[in-house]
């Protein structure tokens, strides 16, 4: 079994991580306007399905994987925590390049971030109490004298703390859209650099960690995102949503807000549980970037025709009047799109 003897991240690493969280959440806020929250209410169908997918499906997928792979309790809790997180601004960028609905993606990010204040503690309570009891027993057996419980209050406080820079970003956006854009770019870039730094620094100081980490943990870290993409797509398909909404919901479901996970773990959990949880969060954050890139390339390809039709319809309505309906001759369209081409 994997053992993390020393602290996974040094004090400097942790400080860097905290800074990264601050910058990224600020950048996320800089990309949001109050309008995004309001418009979320105006497309209830997509939002409800997105909500079911993010807070219904995704935690269950994480739980299922944790049970199926028989993960040690600390890692199981981390995996479920990741499953319960709201979406991040990364998903908006991926949705854009995957020809998904960026508006829906942004609305879902905004709404889920707010809803997480209630949903996250609730879901954790519901799905992790079993793991928490096991962890408590293990820790006692190992001679620790403290009891382990899920730190509900701390989690809510961490979430609130994380929302402070988001609000700051939104205020900047209101004051100066130009600077807000720069903040968004900086945030994205910072995220990549810090993740790369954390991976290398972890590899240098705990080189054996990669090898000693059993396959179940890798499978869990990679699988939770992939399963999120798959089930998010299938569910929105079952509700007959348009392809570009399906792609947005799929990505939004699989891509979680990694920085919030780091914030919660750092602020609410103590060693030795903390290091184990952090390790899973690092693995998830790394692999999700890679798997999202591949999924995005794939969506980009399969979504070409419906996206082109959508853009064409939108331009036609803008230029020729809202009432204009582009009537595509059936023979030209791929069979799947025949019924819906004009209203994409």
């Amino acid at each position: 079994m994997m053992e993390i003897e020393r602290q996974l991240l040094s004090g400097l690493d942790q400080a860097l991580l905290a800074l990264m969280i601050l910058v990224i959440m600020f950048g996320m806020g800089a990309g949001l306007t109050p309008e995004d929250f309001r418009s979320a209410l105006r497309r209830p169908r997509g939002m409800v399905i997105g909500f079911l997918s993010q807070f219904g499906l995704m935690p269950l997928i994480a739980l299922g994987l944790a049970v199926l792979l028989d993960l040690p309790p600390a890692l199981a809790i981390a995996l479920v925590l990741i499953g319960c997180l709201p979406g991040g601004s990364t998903s908006n960028m991926f949705a854009y390049f995957a020809r998904g609905s960026v508006a829906l993606s942004i609305s879902m990010t905004a709404a889920s971030t707010l809803l997480a204040l209630v949903m996250l503690p609730l879901l954790l309570e519901l799905y992790t109490s079993g793991f928490a009891a096991r962890l408590d027993a293990e820790l006692r057996a190992a001679g620790e004298d403290a009891t382990f419980v899920i730190p509900r209050v701390n989690i809510i406080i961490s979430l609130l703390l994380v929302l402070v820079p988001v609000a700051g970003g939104m205020i900047l956006r209101r004051r100066s859209p130009g600077w807000a854009k720069a903040a968004e770019d900086t945030a994205g870039f910072t995220a990549i650099i810090v993740i790369l730094y954390l991976i290398t620094s972890a590899a240098l100081r705990h080189g054996g960690l990669y090898v000693s980490t059993p396959w179940q943990i890798y499978t869990g870290a990679v699988g939770v995102g992939l399963a999120g993409f798959l089930f998010g797509y299938l569910m929105s398909g079952a509700f007959r949503l348009e392809p570009r909404f399906r792609r947005a919901i799929s990505l939004e479901t699989g891509i979680q807000n990694g920085p919030i996970a780091f914030a919660i773990i750092l602020l609410s959990f103590a060693e030795p549980v903390r290091s184990q949880m952090l390790w899973l969060a690092i693995l998830y954050s790394t692999f999700i970037v890679i798997s999202s890139s591949f999924i995005t390339l794939w969506y980009r390809r399969v979504g070409r025709i419906d996206d082109e039709l959508h853009r064409n319809n939108r331009v036609h309505q803008r230029l020729f009047g809202e009432a204009f309906q582009t009537r595509y001759p059936e023979a030209l369209l791929p069979p799947k799109l025949r019924r819906i081409a004009h209203r994409l």
Binding site: R318, L319, F320, G321, T326, R327, Y328, P329
Partner: peptide, 16 residues
């Protein structure tokens, strides 16, 4: 073949 699809468009105003 293309029937009602627009073939040509001319500008009357900025978004018209």
């Amino acid at each position: 073949t293309f029937a009602d699809l627009p073939a040509f468009a001319t500008r009357r105003g900025p978004d018209d």
